[in-house]
Design a protein around this nucleic acid. Structure first.
Lengths: 325, 325
DNA sequence: TTGAAAGCGCTAACAA
DNA sequence: TTGTTAGCGCTTTCAA
């Protein structure tokens, strides 16, 4: 039943040349006479030839696949990042092998899975690859880049939003709004980004941070209940992310009858869609996910050609989006 | 530099057998003596052998890859569906090849890309595959399933939420809340799902639907401005999706000072996170994305073993989530 | 039960 | 510039 598909051999026959010439022509590699080249191209087109990526990859010991590792957590920011990553990958003619991991163990098995496909690179947006895993990749010449997380590993490039700059922008904004007592809302045992933002904050402001029990809308509500119980003792708040900010804002407004941009100012992080809903209009910091994605691909290809180049750490600018909080 | 990785040959040598035995043992295919089997397993484990998926797939003419086609549109519902799809795929030991398409043309090139990787199946969540594309897949024995869309093609299985049931649930709810003049908010030139919901609605209620200019929060606002301008002439509204519902609700509340669950009732669709925020608390219909995903994988594997089985159309139950609207 | 050998479709070194 | 040849690592008849 399953019809055999058209191979380079067929094209070679049709064009009256050898398969080697076909290969050279189609991969633009090695020299072919102009006329021959055209013959091959025509034949390939006529027959509807499609190269078999499996065979090609097997031979080249490298597939046109790039592994993208994400955690189940589907918050709007992550979705946006993923979308931009996939687009960047496809723009370079690669394809995205999407791997969802739940646990640290998953990361290990996933990374070996990816090596079995001889991926051209791995982009980690969740979890922390261990040294052995990475060295395994290095051995196989597979570059690894991590996004919004750090690692000690020397061969792994890092890309993240500039959280320090973010902290500064948030503080400047709050002060400009006249706030005198600033506060930060982080997450207990939170994500790497939340921790970094907290650290960045603490370098600039001494106030001990508020901590939400979890990184979510509900976490923001819970944090607000605790924080506002004894009265409002701050007038400017920076939240580690927008979901927290929305939760905090709602609890403050509906349970404690506080008014945003009046009783206190609030800055979020991520610029997720909800923040621009009429009922929120939250001031926030927008990450440049497109640039992060583009940079990830650049780093991957740089390291592909020179596995041992020095580790690079990129900080991508964030942008303050001023709304009504 | 790049160390050659361990092959079946190495394992064979180490175990003192032929590579054929190694292959049989590891793929559980053909017979191997118990003792030999153990020897091979031990050797493989000791050497840390990992099968080369490229070689295996080339030989079997089929990779452990499943193509997932999505459109750039990252609304929360789509993200959730994607996540569930990827999990289901990984649960079956396959890997997800994620392809983002923008235009109809992209679908075509993407589908041929996928065939080049000899994927074991394709899941389409966006766009409408043409007859030729599908027949190309059929020829290569690649099953195709579409989610939340329909197609005339006989070899393509369809899975979607039961929109008719959804319409009925929404209407029942609104009537139970005492609504007398029901209305539906669809989308002008909208998604397939929105159209189906509209059709389902119209079979039950004769009222001509409202139409938003686009499928988004802003679309909902725009629709509300038009609809409410001349006064409120309905008391129960069903929106094609939650983003529209949020926009409509906000415009109604903030611009027209209407009260939800008082001046009119509103039911959404999708149960996206924003709907359960304190400031919305929208009643909505939840799609069972996990079941949709699981079903997609089932259909794919069924068709894989019998390409010509009759086309199947599955409707997955939706669930009314009653909140405060 | 095991091994030898052919082949999946492609690339690349080498020779012509 | 072209063709020949030897693999890439695996699976799978077919004999032994």
């Amino acid at each position: 039943m399953a019809k055999r598909s058209i191979t380079a051999q067929d094209v070679a026959l049709h064009a009256g040349v050898s398969r080697a010439v076909v290969s050279r022509t189609l991969s633009n590699n090695g020299c072919v006479a102009k006329a021959t080249r055209q013959k091959v191209l025509d034949a390939a087109h006529e027959l509807g030839y499609q190269v078999n990526m499996l065979a090609q990859s097997l031979n080249r010991q490298r597939s046109m696949l790039i592994g993208v590792i994400t955690s189940g957590q589907t918050d709007p920011y992550r979705s946006q990042l993923l979308e931009d990553l996939v687009r960047s990958i496809q723009a370079q003619n690669y394809q995205a092998l999407l791997c969802d991991i739940q646990t640290h163990q998953d990361l290990a098995t996933t990374l070996t899975k990816l090596t079995q496909f001889r991926v051209s690179g791995v982009i980690v947006t969740s979890g922390h690859p261990s040294a052995e895993l990475v060295s395994e990749c290095v051995k196989l010449n597979i570059p690894v880049v991590v996004i919004n997380r750090s690692t000690q590993l020397p061969q792994v490039d890092e890309i993240s939003s500039d959280n320090t700059q973010g902290a500064q922008l948030a503080i400047n904004y709050l002060k400009k709004m006249g706030c005198q007592r600033l506060q930060f809302l982080g997450i207990n045992n939170g994500t790497y980004s939340a921790q970094i933002r907290q650290t960045a904050w603490q370098r600039l402001e001494p106030t001990p941070p508020l901590l939400a029990p979890e990184s979510s809308y509900e976490g923001g509500i819970a944090a607000a209940r605790v924080a506002l119980q004894g009265g409002l003792n701050f007038d400017g708040l920076w939240c580690a992310n927008d979901l927290l900010a929305c939760g905090f804002a709602d609890c403050a407004r509906f349970e404690f009858k506080l008014k945003l941009a009046q009783d206190f100012y609030l800055v979020g992080f991520d610029d997720i869609p909800s923040t621009h809903f009429v009922s929120y209009q939250l001031t926030t910091l927008r990450q440049n996910t497109r640039q992060i994605a583009a940079l990830a691909l650049s780093r991957l290809s740089e390291r592909a050609s020179a596995m041992t180049v020095e580790k690079r750490i990129d900080k991508v600018d964030v942008k303050l989006i001023i709304r009504n909080s």
